[in-house]
Design a protein around this nucleic acid. Sequence first.
RNA 1: GGCCCCGUCGUCUAGCGGCCUAGGACUCUGGCUUCUCAAGUCAGCUACGAGGGUUCGAAUCCCUUCGGGGCUACCA
Length: 485
Amino acid sequence: MSRPVKVRFAPSPTGDLHVGNIRTALFDWAYARHTGGTFLFRIEDTDTTRVTDEYIKAAIDTLRWLGLDWDEGPEVGGDNGPYLQSQRLDIYTQWAHTFIEQKDAYYCYCTPQELEAVREAQRAANQAPGYNGHCRELSAEQITEYKAQERGAVVRMRMPEGSTTFDDLIRGEMQFDHRFVPDFVLARADGSPLYTLAVAVDDVLMKVTHILRGEDLLSSTPRQIRVYQAMGLKEQEYPVFAHLPFVMGADNAKLSKRNGEVSIAWYRDKGFLPEAICNYLALLGWSPGDNRESVTMRELCELFTVEKVNSSPARFDMKKLEAINADKIRALSIEDFLSRVLPFLIKAEVITGTPDEIELVKRALPIIQERIIMLSEVPAMLNFLFVQELTIESESLSKVNDADAKVILRRSLKELELVSDWRHTMIEAVLRTSLIDEMGLKPRVAFGAVRIATTGSTVSPPLFESMELLGKEASLARISAALAL
RNA sequence: GGCCCCGUCGUCUAGCGGCCUAGGACUCUGGCUUCUCAAGUCAGCUACGAGGGUUCGAAUCCCUUCGGGGCUACCA
């Protein structure tokens, strides 16, 4: 097996790419990069009723955003294109014909109703459900009769007796008895190809060597191998399979809207960093082996091997994703942090994006960097720096307009007016001396009142730094305003 | 129902016959620190699904059982 590695990620974009898809894409990508092979991206849009252009576009965007760059595929091209199956229909049709000619496949005239009736009977008789081979050996007369009845004909693959054995990189040797792999449909009555045909043909034609995909496809593997055989491949030319375990939702089964969001777009909007998502997902079903939890994309490429992928399913844990995201945010340089956070501030209309605003945001970032889990929290946290009229949150109102608070604020105002060098160290020194040392107040109480007056909330970034950023004029004005309540 | 996959703390995992009185991370609980919130730091809770074997010795190997999941389409 010295052929160069080529791994493919081939989603069927029937919606936004979700967590499970991305975990697969990440492993595909990491394996390709680890081996120095090729990463191929293909769109499986043979189900025209469910796949839309929008979803295809979204899939491409998502992969790009995550940094999972592909060597062959949509937009980048390659020698084995096109990479949208909807543009390869002729190829599949040709192969379907070839299979018919070779007698590997045959036309099946059974109607959906008839097939359903058969399945029903099988269920009732407690038999393995599946096509009964009705049209396997039709006589010329029968065919003419069916045609006369204007029945449609699907192309069905003939499964020979025996079994299919292959070596799954994650699960070991797999064997499927053909008694439980019925003849399957390759092309619809209208001639359009089905997944079973298109995947196999494309993997062969695109020279894919390794197929890492969800374990839901495990039992369809014998069918794919059957197509390889019909295409004339030798066993050593088959791609190698590795079926990845599922990513499941918090409680029960598969990940769904109910237990944690599935759409990667949602995580992006929430302000999860792509590298955090990848880091977290990498740990779902795979482990670097040592105790490290923080993995960069580069390290992932270096360390990732399929053999180390677990065979058991993993539950998606939002809390851990959040913890990793918070870590990654803390590790960001201020410049990087700034560029990532600006879109959130502008979208939330906290700022419009003027150079002055950006400069102030940049100065404020260090004091909020370790206080957020997601970028989407930033607008609410920095809003107080940019509003003209500060509104004090209702729950905190009572704490600034009572008599004790007034005393604190009056004193603070008086002392702060004298501060000429408006830096947080000076502000703190002045306030500490007057409120804590001289008035004997508890820091919590004294600074609490000032905090509410200047930031509008009992929870804020560090007080003195916040006041420095706000500026002397605005700070004093806000204290005065609170006094007037 | 049939076929197939899977089973270590609440969660993700390390473990691949003795190094395991089972390690790490997240979560949770309590303490310290502290201008709020965080961060940091210390401590604690909690696991080999069950039952049989094999072996001097089993989380690690085998069998059974129970539990979870997938497939069973003219979806992918």
